[in-house]
Nucleic acid binder design. Sequence first.
DNA 1: GTGCGATGCG
DNA 2: CGCATCGCAC
Lengths: 260, 260
Amino acid sequence: MKIATWNVNSIRTRLDHVIEWLTDNPVDVLCLQETKVIEEWFPRLPFTKLGYYLYVSGQKSYNGVAIASLQPLTDSIIGFNSILPDLDSKWDEQKRVITGMLADICIVNLYVPNGSSVGSNKYEYKLKWLHLLGSYLQKLMQTHSHICMCGDFNIALEDRDIHEKVNNKNHIMSSSAERQALKSILSLGFADAFRKFNQESGQYSWWDYRAASFQHNFGWRIDHHYLTPELYNRAKGCITDTIPRNKQKPSDHAPVILEI
Amino acid sequence: MKIATWNVNSIRTRLDHVIEWLTDNPVDVLCLQETKVIEEWFPRLPFTKLGYYLYVSGQKSYNGVAIASLQPLTDSIIGFNSILPDLDSKWDEQKRVITGMLADICIVNLYVPNGSSVGSNKYEYKLKWLHLLGSYLQKLMQTHSHICMCGDFNIALEDRDIHEKVNNKNHIMSSSAERQALKSILSLGFADAFRKFNQESGQYSWWDYRAASFQHNFGWRIDHHYLTPELYNRAKGCITDTIPRNKQKPSDHAPVILEI
DNA sequence: GTGCGATGCG
DNA sequence: CGCATCGCAC
């Protein structure tokens, strides 16, 4: 079974790329981030035609997540609030979390806040949001043994996940507090699927549109699959597909495919 | 010799269409309107590669005219002011006129103001501008016998130049005052090249982007070549090429080609 | 650099 | 409806 994650930077603008990719790569599950569209305007038909069921959470202009699955999900939930009912519902205003059940696997599709710059209000929001994500997962793990948490984490955990030029601790996506916040979540019992198979540096999933970053491979590995132990043991591979990043008007992210 | 006129609605956005069209239709002269770009940013190279000399007058976002010619023009002038030195230079702030000499032919390339709606300030501006154009041509005719005045006139002179649905005298582009202003100019000694060869209605050069106008041929003939008598006698044909209007993301205008 | 939205223009 | 600008986000 293949579960892919792809920040598409607008599903409407990237529709042709995504559908072409899905045609060539009929993964069982595709987790999308930054769809940038309300549910009603999500372009469902091209996915349906390929046999995918869609589970969508979206807003205007920003954020937005969705899961496309060849098998119908037996359950899907949007946001933090239904699992964390005491949480102020403002934390679900930004559409960044969608969770779905596929057989015994709980798929948590995330678009972690970017955080803008270290020390900014958005940075504080990111850290707080990551803390809530920890609470969400802790609660989820009480009832689900097999969790695949994937998406755009906007955090590169290790120095080998960043091209050298911007490898510093005060940079957004690699600051100590962000890494610590993510590690704290992972300590609940998650392991990075990609690093089970590949220890190399230079394996990125995102390249800034500016300064021809992709051409120089000045990228970051910020799109991840984190798995609970049994799933991690079952994992057969995890690769990044850079083909779509070479197209005209690409997303700035490449899809990452987990096989279990 | 072929002299074409084409309102391209942004030369940067339409560059591929224009260059492809010029490759297939290597007219001697192409008069462009609504280039929507300052001179420095006009995409010259693709024209140069096809062997065209360029004469450009542009501004940011709006208006803008240019002449591309296989032979170098022996003279070119921008705006009204150099011929009407007493005129307030504010009348050349909008880049709507460029004039060039090719052998003994004076080519006046125009983008006449649209006028917005009958009675508006912009309508008054259009009428005043047309009056100034008359003065400009009168002066020009003192020294030039052969004038080809072409471009987007934003006026349909006769009812047969408009699809029936909007054929009324209070509509912008067909109101009596506009038609009268243009007729007054033509009375200086100009004749409509297109009507030398084609008396039919339904022969349009512009179709609104809205309401699938082109599909229904709900158009207007507002792009014209007006010729002084000897040129008019020499004219061998004048046709509208609707092929580019069928492309993806077309200009709302089609090119019109005069052969003399 | 790229996408989205709002606004102005036609 | 399409283009251009601007401000914002990333």
